Amino acid sequence: MKVLHVITGLGVGGAEQQLRLLLRHLPVECEVATLTNPGAVAAGLVADGVRVHHLGMRGNRDLRVIPRLLRLIHAGGYDLVHTHLYRACVYGRTVARLAGVRAVVATEHSLGETQMEGRRLTPGIRALYLAGERLGSATVAVSPAVADRLGRWGVPAPRIEIIPNGIDLAQLRFDPSRRRRARQRIGIPQDAYVVGGIGRLTTGKRFDVLIRAVARLPDHLWLLLVGGGPQETVLRRTAHAAGVADRVLFTGERPYLAEETPGSDLPSLTAAMDLLVSPSLEETFGLAVVEALASGLPVLYASCPAIEILPPRAAPGARRLRGGPEAYARAIAEVRSAGPRPRTVPEAAQRYGITHSAARLMDVYAAALSRPLVPSPQGVDCP
Rank of each mutant, 00 (worst) to 15 (best):
G14C: 05
L21E: 13
C30W: 00
E31G: 03
L35D: 07
A40N: 05
A40Q: 13
A47M: 09
H54Y: 11
G56A: 14
R58E: 14
R68Q: 10
H82L: 03
H82D: 07
T83R: 07
T83F: 04
L85N: 14
Y86T: 02
V90S: 11
Y91M: 12
T94W: 13
A96C: 01
G100A: 05
E108Y: 05
L111N: 07
E113K: 11
T114L: 13
T114A: 15
Q115W: 00
R120C: 08
T122F: 08
I125S: 00
A127W: 00
L128N: 13
G132N: 13
R134F: 06
S137F: 03
S137M: 02
V140D: 03
R152F: 06
P156V: 08
A157V: 09
R159Q: 10
I163R: 03
N165L: 10
P176S: 10
R179T: 12
R180T: 15
A182W: 08
R183L: 14
R185I: 03
R185T: 12
G187C: 09
V194W: 07
G197S: 05
I198L: 15
T203S: 13
T203E: 15
G204C: 00
D208W: 03
L210I: 03
I211T: 06
R212G: 02
A215W: 10
R216F: 06
L221T: 11
L221A: 02
L221G: 03
L223W: 08
G227E: 08
G229C: 08
P230H: 02
E232F: 09
H240I: 14
A242P: 11
G243I: 11
D246Q: 15
R247V: 13
F250A: 10
F250Q: 13
F250D: 12
G252M: 12
P255Y: 03
P262W: 09
A271N: 12
A271E: 01
L275G: 04
S278E: 10
T284A: 13
A288N: 11
L293V: 08
G296K: 05
L297C: 09
P298C: 06
V299C: 14
V299A: 13
S303T: 00
P305K: 03
I309G: 07
A315D: 10
G317P: 06
R322K: 07
E326W: 05
E326F: 01
A331R: 04
I332A: 00
A333W: 06
E334N: 10
V335S: 05
S337Q: 15
A338C: 12
P340E: 01
P342R: 11
T344C: 04
V345C: 12
G353F: 04
I354R: 02
I354N: 06
T355C: 06
H356C: 00
A359D: 04
A359Q: 12
D363C: 05
V374T: 15
P375E: 07
S376W: 06
S376P: 01
D381G: 11
P383W: 12
